[in-house]
Design a binder for these strands. Structure first.
Lengths: 250, 250
DNA sequence: TAGTGGTCTAGACCACTTA
DNA sequence: AAGTGGTCTAGACCACTAG
């Protein structure tokens, strides 16, 4: 014990990041346990010879990572990793799109009269017209996901070829697509393939599946597009970590 | 058009938060669309009469919310809402625990010889002993989740009554439980009830289910506990929003 | 009252992008 | 060269907590 690591002013890693990492390491080593108070910001300023703003920034990082929690007037305390803090993202779904071996086959892309269900999702009249796009996403030749999407028909913005390939799906993920969109709501639930979906994917109806549903709105809060990804449950597992980021890796 | 809103110095809402909100509103109104450049930080300083650090803090907030993105040397740009940015949390699962009508029944809590599967998860010898706890979580009298957990047996830390009730599960979620834990890994996947699980929950085997699996490690990177929640899929839907936080809410 | 985090000021220098 | 964000300084005042 004794000598603390110092901030390396010539490093490419900025001081605030170095300090955050050093504190993370001291927590990961068990020097500070859950509930322990970390040194005060003033102390850290003195110990590591940095300004208050720099210390504050490092501490803020730890708080955002849910590694620590600050309490005004009391101090900064170490948190224990908690299940409730976990968040899952769609990176595993996205991975299929970025994969070189992935291709997208359009099953259907045309203007249709929407079903009552689609009408209610898109908040359009029963007699109106919407664009229906249905795709099969294959990875190395094997069908993996079925994607079905309905767009409010806008005669001013014709359906172009570019909106139908892999890129259109990638844009859905990376946002490059719709500059007319304000926000989206997503749901994830477990389900089973319908007859139709199963047939498209070469599976059996009733096979376990998950469904990612997405509904995007325009700047007038009107639904603009509604769609869903359906895929075999065993092809997609969501994973995440709680506690110190990067702890226990390799 | 014309007059910008000003920062209210006497408000309870601090200037950086007010500025972030004002910018969010200007984006939500469509004044700035996806891809547009926001005013430079220097401009914002002048417009709203605040210091660079305050502007910076507001912009950082928008970046963290994935509403904007900063590019050094170029400016700050509005992002469109993207599917790939979505994250799902366990608040819907957690809700059951915080609910007043929830109770936990212990089916089993004893020291057992672990199965090979549990041995591999906890990285213990086949002949060793682990603590097995199995619970049924009921909401308003109706069984909802089955929870099965295995803890590495430590003779120094006897199993106490307090670890077996609702509180133990709440602690698992809120972290109050293990100050000896460094990090945890979680997975979420769709599955179906086994015969045993189905029997406990009064369901049929094969019914669609969610499984949340959790594996926690101690400060020596040794697995400390492994467990899983299993619940009917239609009782748990994950939802989230992308784009401007709070947009489109009631 | 002393110590803590929460916020803010009014600059500075740097790295990067664009023209 | 001019403009942008990225980082940092060395303070300040405030609100809150605890002894």
């Amino acid at each position: 014990m004794g000598a603390v690591s110092h901030i390396d002013r010539s490093s490419f890693e900025p001081p605030y990041a170095q300090l955050a990492r050093l504190l993370r390491e001291r927590i990961a080593s068990g020097e500070y346990r859950a509930g322990d108070r970390l040194p005060s910001e003033a102390e850290l300023c003195g110990t590591y010879r940095v300004s208050p703003m720099t210390v504050r920034r490092a501490v803020t990082l730890l708080v955002q990572e849910e590694v620590a929690i600050t309490e005004q007037g009391r101090g900064t305390f170490v948190k224990s990793p908690e299940l409730g803090a976990a968040t899952f993202d769609l990176r595993d779904l996205r991975r299929y799109l970025d994969d070189a071996g992935t291709d997208v086959r359009i099953l259907e892309a045309r203007i249709v009269s929407p079903s009552l269900h689609v009408c209610s999702k898109l908040a359009v009249e029963a007699g109106s017209r919407v664009i229906a796009i249905k795709r099969i996403l294959s990875s190395d030749g094997e069908p993996v996901f079925y994607h079905s999407e309905y767009l409010v028909f806008d005669p001013m913005r014709p359906l172009v070829e570019a909106e139908l390939g892999v890129t259109a799906l990638q844009d859905l993920f990376s946002g490059a697509g719709g500059s007319g969109l304000k926000y989206g709501r997503l749901t994830l639930h477990a389900s089973a393939f319908t007859e139709k979906e199963a047939a498209y994917l070469g599976e059996q109806a009733g096979t376990l599946a998950w469904v990612v549903e997405h509904l995007f709105y325009d700047f007038d809060d009107r639904p603009e597009s509604w769609g869903r990804f359906v895929g075999r449950a065993d092809r997609l597992t969501f994973s995440t970590t709680v506690g110190i980021p990067g702890a226990g890796e390799a």
